[in-house]
């Protein structure tokens, strides 16, 4: 494409210069249009096969915004509530449809509690999500877990409005089928 445009531009510039010298009042000529498909075989789009519907949704961005990557936990709790199960069921379906993705499940806590206990608490939450996804048919070899404890809060204020957002597990999907 680039080479096409450059070769077209040179004669056009030369033409403007030539016109400018001979007749200043004349309108500029229309731009030179080059068909980018000119010269390709068949001269246009060629059908080469069907696209499976699922892969239109098969991006990490789609997973994050449409499936939902985060589930929340009640204070001190590591068991999944109904809201969490609904989101995780969608996650499991998506992971089944997008078998080329692996996932890292990140467990987090709020800032209440000591550093090491919160690491263990985040790990337990991540483990609960992992167990649920496996029970819904996601291969264990596609899942890893990590705990950040209270090191990476989603919201930074120091009351329940933020704590409730920080007691969470985030499912991060990435291309690559896991170990």
């Amino acid at each position: 494409m680039t080479t096409i445009r450059m070769s077209a531009a040179k004669p056009a510039a030369a033409l403007v210069l030539a016109l400018g010298l001979s007749a200043c009042a004349a309108p500029p000529p229309p731009p030179v249009v080059v068909d980018p498909y000119a010269g390709t075989a068949g001269g246009g789009a060629v059908y080469t096969g069907a696209v499976p519907a699922g892969s239109l949704n098969g991006t990490a961005e789609y997973f994050r915004t449409n499936v939902g990557d985060t589930v929340l936990f009640d204070r001190d709790q590591t068991t999944l509530n109904d809201g969490a199960r609904t989101v995780l069921a969608r996650q499991a379906d998506w992971l089944q449809q997008n078998g080329s993705f692996s996932t890292v499940i990140q467990g987090h806590s709020d800032e209440q509690g000591t550093r090491e206990f919160n690491l263990a608490l985040g790990a337990r939450r991540a483990g609960a999500v992992q167990e649920y996804l496996i029970s819904r048919g996601v291969g264990a070899n596609r899942i890893r877990t990590v705990s950040y404890g209270k090191e990476r809060p989603a919201a930074t204020c120091s009351d329940e409005s933020c704590f409730s957002q920080n007691r969470r597990v985030v499912t991060v999907v990435q291309p690559g089928a896991g170990t």
Partner: peptide, 9 residues
């Protein structure tokens, strides 16, 4: 040290 496996520490 603390060692976590399958969610349990």
């Amino acid at each position: 040290f603390s060692r976590e496996q399958n969610g349990n520490t």
